[in-house]
């Protein structure tokens, strides 16, 4: 006798994903899709696909999708959520989309405490256009527009979005996770689920920043890329919760318990 303990989620369509081998987008797509399915909101979820590699997300998520201009996801999400507060609205964005061209939309949606969820994939590079420097590219990191490594004198410093948005008074949920190892993937799913629950309970803006790997544009093998996440990315972008809507009233420990998170325990 055997039991299927891991099956492809119905939150994704059947179309094979076109991302490069080892790319973190696929893992993150699965996490978001599983959370949508587990929360039972698939029939009333609207997703927003960005401009960038994950523009294809509108083919992969098995729910209504919209594809707005580069960086404008939070603005479109605002319009949709205000008209359909009964729907769950999430905006899937990369680092160029969210932290560069869409910075104003991101900051103001957070400041208005819009009840939307942002899935922010930070892989420190512009993937779709061939590996140009992003606002999150690490100091010294090579890209096609910083061929000698990012020089702070000419290109400034990387932006840490969670810390940045945590400075706002507006309530919300801000967390940074990664998907480079199984344990991190499980934590990431927990964070995504919590973010969606924050939206569903009307507690304000939620953003999950996910440190992801881009083997192709980092010029690394998939295995080297996950090592790069561990050794280079995470030291600069520390993982953890930066803001949670429960902190003030009930204390951090209780807050963690308040939201029930399904955690897989059936492995050795």
């Amino acid at each position: 006798m055997e039991k299927k303990v891991f099956k492809r989620t119905g939150g994704l369509t059947d179309i094979p994903m076109r991302y490069c081998p080892g790319c973190g987008h696929g893992i993150i797509h699965r996490l978001v899709a599983e959370v949508i399915e587990e929360l039972g909101v698939q029939k009333r979820t609207i997703g927003i696909a960005p401009v960038g590699c994950s523009v294809f997300a509108d083919e992969y998520f098995n729910c209504d999708m919209i594809q707005p201009p580069h960086g404008r996801g939070p603005a479109v999400a605002t319009g949709m959520k205000r008209i359909r507060p009964d729907c769950v609205v999430f905006s899937y964005q990369g680092d160029g989309d969210l932290a560069s061209i869409g910075m104003a939309e991101t900051v103001h949606a957070a400041a208005r405490a819009e009840n939307i969820t942002i899935i922010f994939v930070n892989n420190a590079i512009y993937g779709m256009t061939g590996g140009q420097m992003a606002p999150t590219t690490l100091i010294g990191m090579k890209s096609t527009t910083s061929p000698f490594g990012r020089d702070v004198k000419r290109a400034g410093y990387p932006i840490r979005m969670c810390e940045f948005l945590a400075a706002l008074d507006a309530p919300g949920y801000l967390v940074r996770v990664s998907v480079h190892k199984p344990a991190n993937v499980m934590k990431a799913k927990k964070a995504v689920k919590k973010a969606f629950q924050v939206q569903m309970e009307g507690l304000g803006f939620s953003m999950v920043e996910i440190i992801s790997q881009c083997p192709t544009d980092w010029f690394l093998t998939p295995l080297q890329a996950v090592e790069y996440v561990e050794k280079q990315m995470i030291p600069y972008y520390p993982l953890g919760e930066y803001k949670t809507p429960f902190k003030k009233e009930e204390g951090k420990k209780e807050a963690k318990d308040k939201i029930e998170v399904e955690f897989r325990t059936d492995f050795n």
Binding site: E2, K4, V5
Partner: peptide, 10 residues
């Protein structure tokens, strides 16, 4: 990353 694996546990 490609959601290509399904797992069956005894």
């Amino acid at each position: 990353p490609d959601v290509a694996i399904e797992v069956y546990k005894e």
